[in-house]
Amino acid sequence: MPKPEHKDAGHRPRLRERFLDGGADALPDYELLELYLFQCIPQKDTKPLAKRLINTFGSFAEVMTAPVERLVEVKGVGAVTAANIKVLHAAALRLNRENVLSRPILSSWTALLDYVRGAMQYETNEQFRVLFLDKKNRLVADEVLGKGTVDRAPVYPREIIKRALELGSTAVILCHNHPSGDPTPSQSDIDMTNVVMAAAKPIGISVHDHIIVGRNNTVSFKSLGLM
């Protein structure tokens, strides 16, 4: 006798069809993650795992940005699945970075904000990164120059200037995240920015902006009139 059809038979093709017809917006976070997990775990129902991951971390984006050591703590996530999730995150960052590289940054500001948000939005510790630009305001390098705790990342203005000179960069954009979620600049943020600007100006290096990345939005020092 033929085996009875499993109650979930056809679920994967239907989910793929919904995605192809309506794109990612047609699926809630757990279904989009479930769809991706099909590729990682081909012979198992991935819906419970997708829901478990979303419940643990909060959203699709937060699953992608979670560190490997946290991912493997979730029941059902092995080293291979965790690595595949991190590959997807890296691919998204690479795509965003290519969008920034292809055009002068000051004329593609939205792409720049998408890139720094993707890189820093869900970091649990504060990090300070610098975007180094050439004479045409194209990205030369993107480097993290400071990593710290939940509310502080040490950064030394002389290291920023030294690295800009090494790269032949004529302008920089400062970026750091606030893991608390609130991107409001602190007085120490303002003071540090002023020190960098004072050190950069005599040697012809422009500081175009300082961007603070919060959980849901970003703040630009220039737009706030702070520089």
Rank of each mutant, 00 (worst) to 15 (best):
G146Y: 08
S188T: 10
S206H: 08
I105R: 10
T56L: 06
I85A: 06
V68L: 08
D8L: 08
S169E: 11
R14L: 04
P185K: 10
N55F: 01
Q187G: 07
V150K: 11
R163C: 01
T149P: 04
K222C: 06
L71S: 00
M227V: 14
S169I: 06
T218H: 13
T124Y: 02
G168Q: 05
N194P: 09
G58M: 10
K75D: 14
I54W: 00
A171S: 15
P48A: 01
G78C: 06
G204K: 07
S223M: 07
V155I: 14
V130F: 02
I160L: 11
T81D: 09
A9R: 03
R18S: 10
G10S: 01
P67Y: 00
T65P: 00
N217F: 01
V80N: 08
A9H: 13
L226W: 03
F132G: 12
S206K: 15
L145V: 06
K47S: 05
H210K: 06
I203K: 11
A26D: 11
R117K: 11
A82L: 02
D21C: 05
N55G: 15
T193E: 13
L101P: 07
V72F: 06
L113V: 15
A9M: 04
P13F: 02
D29Q: 03
K47D: 02
K47C: 01
L27Q: 03
L20F: 01
A141R: 15
D189G: 08
A79C: 01
K47N: 01
G148M: 11
I105C: 11
H178A: 11
L101F: 14
G148Q: 07
W109G: 14
A119F: 00
N55C: 05
F60W: 14
R70E: 06
T65V: 00
K136H: 12
A141C: 11
V195M: 13
E159V: 06
W109R: 15
K3H: 13
F60K: 09
M120P: 00
F128V: 04
G22A: 08
E123I: 00
G204C: 06
G168S: 10
V77W: 11
S206T: 15
G225I: 00
L224P: 12
K3A: 09
P13N: 03
D209T: 07
I54S: 04
D25Y: 05
L33N: 04
